[in-house]
């Protein structure tokens, strides 16, 4: 009975990846359905993200593990980086699939440092410009960039995104679904913004170079969600 209050699957932020926790007792098929149900909400928003697959006491057959790996990768672009399992067999199967595997006990030691701090109180500080082709992720709090985010660069955070520079690339705040997250930049001229699952595109794509020059002098701006829409306005403190 106790188990029914707990969800079959939990998806949490973990450093720069996601931690997917599967309850050990329910049948595999049910757990898999629940996982699909959870992840479908995010669409392909996490493509390229690393996964910590925590199966605890559950023993997975190699076929089940393979299916999970395929499902996560094909459907969501997620890559399993590490499997946490108390079953020797499951860990062996994982290693055959070239996945690192550790028992729960061993893992706890390394996990503590990450969970000691309250989520919203940590931030990753990036002390350089994020350039084209670079993606910075942090799924346990906010990201602060001391530099610019250039076109083709991308920031993904479960909390807020603060850019002490010009944000021209892509920013996704509240990426685990928190629509109260904000994006602040000294100059906010992004290619694309996302807060939670709400999408905002740059209106300036069709603007001429001359118009964009005029924007150089703009004030610090904030993007936040009001009535299910991303609103950008001058930043005057929260």
């Amino acid at each position: 009975m106790k188990n029914q209050q707990q969800p079959l699957v939990e998806v949490k932020g973990y450093r720069e990846g996601l931690r997917i926790i599967l309850r050990p007792e329910p049948p595999f098929e049910d757990v898999q359905d629940a996982l699909v149900h959870q992840l479908d909400r995010f669409g392909d928003a996490f493509a390229g993200t690393g996964i910590l697959l925590d199966v605890g006491e559950r023993s997975l057959s190699d076929d089940e593990l393979r299916r999970l790996q395929k499902l996560l990768y094909r459907r969501y672009g997620l890559e399993i980086r590490r499997v946490i399992s108390d079953s020797d067999r499951t860990r062996q199967f994982a290693e055959i699939l070239k996945l690192a595997a550790v028992p729960t006990l061993h893992h706890r030691e390394t996990a503590i440092e990450a969970s000691q701090v309250v989520q919203t109180e940590i931030a990753r500080v990036i002390r350089q410009t994020v350039r084209a082709g670079q993606v910075e992720r942090f799924y346990e709090g906010s990201i602060m960039v001391l530099g610019d985010v250039n076109p083709g660069g991308e920031i993904v955070a479960s909390g807020d995104i603060i850019v002490l520079g010009t944000l021209r690339g892509i920013a996704r705040a509240g990426c685990l679904g928190d629509t109260s997250a904000i994006i602040v930049a000294l100059q906010l001229v992004p290619t694309q913004l996302r807060i939670g699952s709400i999408l905002g595109r740059s209106p300036s794509t069709s603007k001429s170079l001359r118009d964009r020059n005029a924007e150089r002098e703009k004030n610090t701006e904030i993007a936040h969600v009001v009535d299910d829409q991303i609103i950008i306005e001058e930043y005057r403190g929260i």
Binding site: Q128, R131, A132, G133, Q134, N150, P151, G152, G153
Partner: peptide
Amino acid sequence: VRDADRIIGLLQ
């Protein structure tokens, strides 16, 4: 410019 930016990132 986009590709130059990419290259600068790789150089750094």
